[in-house]
Design a protein around this nucleic acid. Structure first.
Lengths: 245, 245
DNA sequence: GGTAATTTGTCCGTATGTATA
DNA sequence: ATATACATACGGACAAATTAC
């Protein structure tokens, strides 16, 4: 008698919906029936429906928004046939060798100028640390680095001096959160005189400014980092490779 | 707003448990209290506890087994579990809207200066096309673009005028090759006076220079592109997301 | 070795919150 | 402003499996 019954109801529902989505019953962009309607159709509780939909969301088949319903999202295989193999660690590799000398390290309130630069909300408090990164103590700095760290994780501030690599693993280890997303923006700037002097380059030199925002799985911003590299000493390189599915 | 302390019980519970785990209240290998005990302790329903534990599981902090309870697992310590989901299309998205006006289009022999800039072998011949890209015919250009196309694929040169998007799909379609790898290097430059004038910005302005090399599955370089964007009009953004395996 | 207790996983019904069309 | 639909939250129940007796 258990022949028809596979596993667990919510898996059966998930399978059924998945099949209908790939069969085109619910084409990309269309709305799935509401959870209530699905409850009636499958004669199960809302818990079961939601558990099934959670599986479909985990597979990036659908996306749900309050009031907007649950809609079928385009399959990632159509036009975005490229995926890259760069890891977050590659992204940070450049920082490995250099030593970070802290100059400032204090709680700061985000003003409008900083908010504009970093995207942080004005008025919020962050641990701000800044300094210069160099490979040798005697050579010119590689870059100027600014950290803005979520106050909840400000305890890492004490470790910054001794630490040399990227610091978000520190936050992960100390607080048990995991960074699920890193957003990076790269822009070109002309160095102002004071900063040029500190970086030991001529005023008017171009610099690459790389800003990274680290977001935890809770959707909370853990850290924002701004690196300013004189153009002569830095070039950002990455390689995308197509992978078969 | 969005004060981290606030909303959603299951997030509060998750944070509390996370803290106790990293503080060593529940060391690695130990058992967490049962869900029922946690319900009593936090005075919440089992739904809330389970939702909190789900978060901890998603972060690989704990593992639950039926009947065995929930136990604290060692952190995956290795820093290699990060992969990104950016596609080549994302990389090229910016080029979609803009129109490309060709100024030069001719076979060229790579001299030492060009070899230095692009990595191409001196003495080899490439179809060189350059021009300016603008969204509107009347507005200032978005960037200056230089193409260097493998002579084997030089036939695409005739299509460049009419074509607006990225051109490597053109090469793929016409010649049946497939681009398997894209290498990108980003650097900052100060615009020389002549180029600044053509881009309608002040001399001495910073610009982002993005150079991409497209390699086919044969290991042959199909195309090299150099885009020069005045800093005010361009910012390179990308997002890395960790994907579960 | 069989049995009972325990604990997670699944499932139900219901109620309230919240964001959106 | 109102209705809608997902998100969160509560309480209760049984199943299956593992541990302890």
């Amino acid at each position: 008698m258990t022949t028809t019954a596979g596993d667990h109801r919510y898996l059966q529902v998930a399978r059924a919906l998945r099949k209908e989505i790939v069969d085109g019953v619910y084409p990309v962009g269309s709305q799935l029936p509401t959870e209530h309607e699905l409850c009636e159709r499958f004669a199960v509780s809302r818990y079961t429906i939601r558990e099934a939909l959670r599986r479909l969301r985990d597979d990036n088949l659908v996306a749900s928004r309050p009031r907007a319903g649950t809609l079928v999202v385009p399959r990632p295989s159509t036009n975005s046939y490229a995926q890259d193999v760069m890891s977050i660690d590659d992204l940070l590799a450049f920082a490995q060798g250099a030593r970070f000398a802290i100059e400032t390290n204090a709680m700061t309130t985000v003003d409008d100028a900083l908010a504009e630069r970093t995207g942080l909300s004005p008025g919020t408090e962050w641990l701000a640390a800044s300094g210069f990164r160099r490979v040798d103590d005697d050579t010119a700095p590689v870059c100027r680095t600014e950290y803005y760290i979520n106050r909840n994780f400000a305890a890492v501030g004490r470790l910054l001096q001794r630490h040399s690599g990227p610091i978000f693993p520190l936050i992960e280890d100390l607080f048990g959160v995991s960074v699920s997303e890193v957003h990076q923006e790269i822009s070109a700037v002309v160095l102002p005189p004071d900063l040029a002097q500190r970086l030991q380059v001529q005023a008017g030199t171009a610099a690459l400014q790389m800003q990274r925002t680290y977001t935890t799985s809770d959707g909370e911003i853990a850290q924002v980092t701004v690196n300013t590299h004189p153009s002569a000493r830095f070039r950002h390189a990455m390689t995308l490779r197509r992978v078969r599915e």
